[in-house]
Amino acid sequence: MSIQHFRVALIPFFAAFCLPVFAHPETLVKVKDAEDQLGARVGYIELDLNSGKILESFRPEERFPMMSTFKVLLCGAVLSRVDAGQEQLGRRIHYSQNDLVEYSPVTEKHLTDGMTVRELCSAAITMSDNTAANLLLTTIGGPKELTAFLHNMGDHVTRLDRWEPELNEAIPNDERDTTMPAAMATTLRKLLTGELLTLASRQQLIDWMEADKVAGPLLRSALPAGWFIADKSGAGERGSRGIIAALGPDGKPSRIVVIYTTGSQATMDERNRQIAEIGASLIKHW
């Protein structure tokens, strides 16, 4: 067993022997301040990774656009098919120029040779490549099948209805392509620590998230040296922004954090800054 596999296998073990965790309302004060600064709703939840206990939450059962955070769930569904012998990570998928959609920095470079399922998941999570996500959605049967996968996990809230990039439209009061912070946090925890996926697939999923290259201005910008984070960000229309993450000190994750916002007129930089400040408060009061 590799060191990384050992780390993920012992996530519940280490967490069980940690000192009790206590909620700190100071972080919620910052979440509410972010709402004021952005002029928009902000949803927040913080779960203990081992027990699933909610440590703090704000608007945990209000719907927010998922945006690209759905790509972690998508690759979880792909990995479940791999575990069941219905898919192979090494299978190569070929596609054409007509398949390319807006923001496809990886797939646009491989029109000639195609990409493997493993490479597509890596591109979808680490670079948020939209064509990679659409190609992977095709392998599982489309958005409705991802929703069905989530329902089978016990998540009857999260739903995907459309493809990239239309799913980022974020129309107010439109339930399409949305989740709730509580539902997303619980589902992410199941994917990373539950028995739904094999140990190898859980490790692969967290490795992809740990290698995320496009979430630097968010929670990662607030992390002290030595902290662990595996995350996936999302951005959408109407001032929408979000991030889902597993993080913790001492090089291992111990909490799940989900943050979503929508309806702001603020710039992307300002949305990023507010999420980073929430992260800084979380870490300060850990």
Rank of each mutant, 00 (worst) to 15 (best):
E61S: 04
L28V: 15
T112M: 15
F70K: 14
T261E: 06
A40C: 10
L223A: 10
S201G: 10
T178C: 04
I243H: 04
S254N: 10
H94L: 13
V257N: 01
E46Q: 13
T262G: 05
M268V: 05
Y103E: 15
M180W: 03
A185M: 13
D207H: 11
I229Y: 05
V214Q: 14
M268G: 03
E62F: 02
P60H: 11
Y95T: 02
G194S: 11
D174L: 03
R92Q: 08
A200S: 12
L49I: 13
Q274F: 10
I45P: 00
T186E: 07
R202D: 05
T69D: 08
H94N: 05
V101N: 10
N50W: 04
W286A: 06
H94T: 06
L205I: 08
L38E: 01
E270I: 06
M66S: 02
I125A: 00
K284Q: 07
P217H: 11
E210N: 08
S233W: 11
E169T: 10
K30D: 15
I259P: 06
A77Y: 00
P249N: 03
A185I: 06
R159L: 00
F149H: 12
F70E: 03
L218F: 05
E46D: 14
S281F: 01
D174M: 06
P60V: 09
V117K: 00
K284T: 08
V214Y: 13
Y260E: 12
P143F: 01
V214A: 12
L160N: 02
Y260I: 03
R255Q: 05
D113Y: 00
C121K: 13
H156Y: 05
D161P: 06
V31C: 11
G194M: 11
A84S: 05
E166C: 09
I54C: 05
G194D: 14
E87Y: 14
I259G: 11
E195S: 07
I283G: 10
D207R: 10
I206E: 13
F58P: 00
L111D: 11
I229T: 06
H156I: 08
T261P: 03
R59N: 13
D231L: 12
R220G: 04
S57H: 14
S57K: 08
A200D: 15
L28D: 10
G39I: 10
K213Q: 03
A183Q: 08
H110T: 00
L47T: 08
E270F: 04
F70W: 04
L28T: 13
A245T: 11
G142K: 02
K53R: 11
R176N: 05
P60N: 11
P253S: 11
T187N: 15
A200Q: 13
A132G: 08
W208Q: 05
T179W: 04
H285S: 02
V82N: 05
A246W: 03
T186D: 11
T158M: 02
L111A: 04
G194Q: 08
Q86V: 12
A230D: 08
T112H: 01
K144C: 07
T262P: 05
T187P: 14
V214K: 14
N50E: 14
G236I: 05
P181E: 02
S264Y: 13
A182I: 02
K232V: 15
V42S: 02
T69Y: 00
G251D: 08
A40S: 08
A225M: 02
I45T: 00
E166K: 13
G39V: 14
K284H: 06
S233K: 15
G216C: 12
E169Y: 07
Y44S: 08
E102H: 15
Q265M: 06
A245Q: 07
N130F: 00
I244G: 11
G141A: 12
M153L: 05
A211V: 02
R92W: 02
S240N: 06
E277N: 13
Q274T: 12
M184K: 08
Q97L: 14
V157W: 06
K284Y: 07
N50I: 07
V42Q: 04
Y95L: 01
A200F: 08
E62P: 00
